[in-house]
Design a protein around this nucleic acid. Structure first.
Lengths: 396, 396
DNA sequence: ACACTTAGTTAATAGCATTTACTAACCACT
DNA sequence: AGTGGTTAGTAAATGCTATTAACTAAGTGT
């Protein structure tokens, strides 16, 4: 059971308890500072139930009591917050360009991180390398005395929905890798929940789970890097990431948006990745594989050819966003991935295209909010950690 | 609460009970003839729980006991089946071309149907017309003595996920219609569950819920008619239809697959509907709005121009199927809608394109099975009835 | 000082699934 | 025919859960 939320089908009393515990936790996560009475009101649970569950969660270090807030007459309620002091989750991303690791607390705050810019080689060696870094990370100040809830790993390719196995990582040349099994062979790693997920899914989950501000109803996170993928999340108390039959949900890089267009490495013509992706841009701009794409683009920003290429890529991204809106209809779009370092030159045309071509299917013409994450170095790693927390909250 | 399954967030003991009841019912639905012991084994519930729930379901007319089946030594189990004799659900489709109504039993068998080929006018008049037909349908032989579980209505446009309201039906000129409220004003309609859903969603749900044969893990139902839409369903015991923020999930007709292509009525260029839809084909083939499109196509099948148009449309459909596969990744695709009456001339190129362009993203190159429904007259109406059953099963 | 209001806890209660022990029904072998 | 073995299903008790109802706690306003 590798997903954060594989919905239970049948239930005993234990299940009911964990359901309510998770609900209460997520209510506090989404609205910090609520009192027990507020929670009871919002969830429909009784004061007694909320009281006993909260008590257990405070004792176990998931929740902490805060200040009193009096609202008019009556006894003031005691504010409740997620306790950021007693637990942490490990999250790691095995990226095409290197390894990223974070340890973060229940609030999503990154307590420590490691970023090692060196491409993975084979799976076993990479597992060994990652394990060593994890051990190092766990020794960071202020972490050692906390309890570890588990480890989430994000990988650059589809993960089978049936088992935590990386089906394919085209940019690493890996096929059907049981990466967690390789990790388990390494010494000194923590117990707890272990999860494996696709990079875009993990990132999407994290951005949804730890969203700052009014939580959106659902999001689609577009990860534009070497390739282009997308993760979708929705669900108030139990955020769900649809994965599909083979874990291909959101593989929008290979949706065809220009029939008869350029040849993609997948064999088809006119895939989105032929227009907007790291390798497509490198090719179009004659940037070497080792050179920095963003450096090249930003220094040659005035160059007419560069502008044309970026406009074309940006508009392709905008078109992808539109198609996504009409297929998955999230309430918010988030743009991330290494390509976002290219800044306005890419996001400008994308947002312009998306804004001007949003059709008036529904009169209300609500524009879909778009959030751009400029530096998404640790987004996927933190998202993997978020999935660990969500899963651990069910078990406690 | 208009969806068949709005997931509960917090639970009392009642919820637990209905969860298990639904699980047991869906186990029998998907595998008719199981014994109590089989169900206990599959669901993880204990024999005692299954026994008591089954007893209640038999008493209420949801399940019936069948033959004994002995497997080797030991007392033989008693086969269980959904009881097709004691209940029925009403399903109706308000289509662009007319009204379709069905009454079907718990097995999905259509007990009676009415098809009135006359386009709807305004919402109130249509509600009145539909209500009269519903009254008529309920008087059909073999129906009057059953209990009605409720009524589901399918409409040709997106339904708000927040409330059972038809947001927009472009082909009817209806905007923000509370159709169920209009229906409720009519006399002699049954109590029970009342639901409203988009036509493609309802059809998808029905095809999934009452699937004949080994049930697929998830399906996408592409509805190609005047416009082109799509419904998605997945979930073993609790089939879920994602609707998205505004109920636009699956509005693939307005995904752009030919940038700079023909102008769509939505204002954009190159939408899928400009290539494959009833009105696009009529335009391309100069078929009058009142004339039969399928008649024109089938009689002029040898015509080179017709073949070219159909090939282009079919390939666009195939491309849509591919993009859907990479975005939603269902384990099965179902093609339906009035356009399927055009037969091979459309599905031929579509299936050929889909088959030859399926890329080898995952080595296993499992081809996605495609099922074509030639006559989908009552598919949406029956699907709406299926949603009623699913909802009623939770409450019983 | 008092009534009033809201927050939160406690003890009793009802409902659920489970456990354990039982009965029911069939097979195979003697 | 009889007996032991095996599986299906039921019944009574047990333990856990959330709810109800009654309570205490802690503030405000008059």
């Amino acid at each position: 059971m590798h997903n954060a939320f594989t919905p239970h089908t049948s239930g005993d009393l234990n299940y009911l308890k964990s359901l309510n515990r998770s609900t209460i936790l997520s209510t506090v996560r989404r609205s910090p500072g609520l009192s027990r009475a507020d929670i009871a009101l919002r969830t429909g649970l009784t004061k007694a139930t909320v009281g006993s569950v909260v008590q257990a969660l405070v004792e176990r270090g998931w929740l902490r009591e805060g200040e009193l807030h009096s609202r008019g007459g009556g006894r003031p309620g005691r504010a409740l917050y997620l306790d950021g002091e007693r637990h942490y989750m490990l999250g790691a991303e095995v990226g095409v360009k290197g390894l990223r690791l974070v340890a973060c607390n229940l609030l999503g705050v990154v307590l420590a991180s490691i970023h090692q810019e060196e491409p993975p080689t084979d799976p076993a060696t990479t597992a060994k390398r990652l394990a060593a870094l994890l051990v190092q990370l766990r020794q960071a100040p202020g972490i050692a005395d906390r309890r570890c809830l588990g480890l989430g790993v994000a990988v650059p390719g589809p993960v089978s929905p049936k088992a935590p196995i990386l089906s394919l990582a085209p940019n690493l040349g890996w096929v059907d890798i049981d990466f967690l099994a390789l990790l388990r062979e390494q010494p000194d790693l923590p117990d707890g929940v272990w999860l494996l997920d696709n990079e875009a899914n993990a990132a999407a989950f994290g951005e949804f789970y730890f969203f700052e501000g009014v939580p959106p109803e659902s999001i689609a996170y577009i990860s534009a890097g070497s390739g282009i993928g997308c993760g979708v999340v929705s669900g108030e108390h139990f955020p769900l990431v649809p994965r599909g039959h083979q874990g291909l949900v959101g593989e929008i890089g290979h949706t065809v948006i220009q029939p008869g267009g350029a040849l993609c490495h997948c064999g088809n013509h006119g895939c989105a990745e032929t227009l907007v992706s790291g390798w497509a841009l490198r090719e179009a701009l004659h940037v070497d594989i080792d050179a920095s794409l963003s450096h090249a683009v930003l220094t040659r920003a005035e160059d007419g050819e560069v502008q044309a290429v970026m406009k074309r890529a940006g508009e392709a991204l905008g078109l992808l966003m539109l198609n996504l809106h009409h297929t998955l209809n999230p309430s918010m779009l988030i743009l991330g991935g290494s390509l976002m370092k290219l800044g306005e030159s890419l996001t400008g045309p994308a947002l312009a295209y998306f804004g001007t071509h949003q059709n008036d299917l529904l009169r209300q013409s609500q524009t879909v909010p778009v959030k751009v994450i400029g530096d998404s170095t640790y987004v996927a790693a933190r998202g993997a950690a978020a999935q660990v927390m969500a899963r651990a909250a069910i078990e406690v």
